[in-house]
Computed example of a mutant assay.
Amino acid sequence: MQILIIEDEPRAANQLQNLLNKSTFDFQLLDVIDTVEDAVLWFKKNNAPDLVFMDIQLADGLSFEIFQQTEVVAPIIFTTAFDQYAIQAFKVNSVDYLLKPIQQNDLDTALHKFFRSNTPTTIVEPDILKKLLNSMQIPQKRSGILVKEGGGFVQIRVSELLYMYSQDSITFGVTHNKRYIIDETMDQLFDSLDDTKFYRINRGQIISKMSIQKIEPYFNHRVKLSVSNPRDQEFIVSRQKTGDFKDWMNK
């Protein structure tokens, strides 16, 4: 069985290859591709493989864009780290997928399903492609933010913010040198931030990963953070979020 992997994270691509090696199926890995552009060129120049494992988010865009630029007749198993809301789009449209991090049992089940089927596991029809594209559009996270200064507003870079907090119904943003008033609620603010860089540790505080200097155990199964320029704030991760926070720090 000839397999093509389209995946932009080397670690994820290596993990998938290791899982394939541990499976009971014989395969030949044709190539590992990490961009939409290179995938389009590959499909135009080569015969279709027996099976493609295709990540959704590639280095230069969504992998669905491949189908808009060239014909892909090979069966596809998508791999994705999207949340459960986005996964629902796959289920509704009967598209095969593996949720990252991929587990050996899930991969083996997908391969067994592939071999039992007399038809390709996934044929990406135009209407299904449109629905998936609409469901998987990734909003652009803001790079700048308006803050109050004097009698008006100035824009600062989001990357300058160490943390944000709410006090007496006012939202503040703190940089290395200054504290600003932000004319947004904590909910509005967090929804617009890159959640790989910022984490809402409790209802009243959002922390930047770059500002965290130390993590210490705290009572009641919580953790306490030491951050840059803490001013008069204590940073306690709520008990419900402690496990998820540690996972976020490991990414």
Rank of each mutant, 00 (worst) to 15 (best):
S117M: 10
Q69H: 10
K91H: 07
K130Q: 10
A89N: 02
F67N: 12
A110G: 01
F67Y: 14
I123W: 06
N134W: 00
L129Y: 01
T79H: 10
I77N: 07
L129T: 06
Q68R: 13
M136W: 04
A74V: 03
F115H: 14
D108G: 00
Y85L: 15
L99F: 08
V92Q: 13
D127H: 11
I76V: 09
E125T: 12
E71A: 15
P101W: 00
T70P: 10
F114Y: 10
I123C: 05
R116N: 15
D96Y: 11
I87L: 10
S135H: 09
L99D: 05
I128S: 03
Q103A: 15
H112Y: 12
Q103W: 03
V95T: 07
P120H: 02
L129V: 06
D83C: 07
F115N: 13
L133I: 12
H112P: 03
I87Q: 07
K100L: 03
F78D: 02
I128R: 06
L129I: 02
Q69E: 11
P101N: 05
D108V: 13
F82C: 11
T121Q: 09
D108W: 09
D106T: 07
I77Q: 04
D83W: 05
M136E: 04
D96W: 12
P126Y: 06
P75R: 08
Q68F: 09
P101K: 02
D127N: 12
N134C: 08
P120V: 02
V124I: 15
L98W: 08
N118R: 12
M136D: 04
I77V: 11
Q69I: 09
V72M: 07
I87N: 06
Y97F: 14
F90W: 04
T70I: 02
R116E: 13
K91M: 06
F67I: 08
N134E: 13
N105Y: 01
T119S: 14
F90V: 02
N93I: 03
A86Y: 06
F115S: 10
L133R: 14
Y97A: 07
P126Q: 04
K130L: 09
A74Q: 04
T70C: 09
T121W: 04
E71M: 14
A86Q: 13
N134D: 14
Q88Y: 15
V92L: 13
S94V: 03
K100N: 08
D127L: 10
Q103C: 09
Q104F: 12
Y85E: 15
T119E: 13
V73G: 05
D96S: 13
D83A: 07
A81T: 08
N93M: 01
T70M: 04
T79E: 05
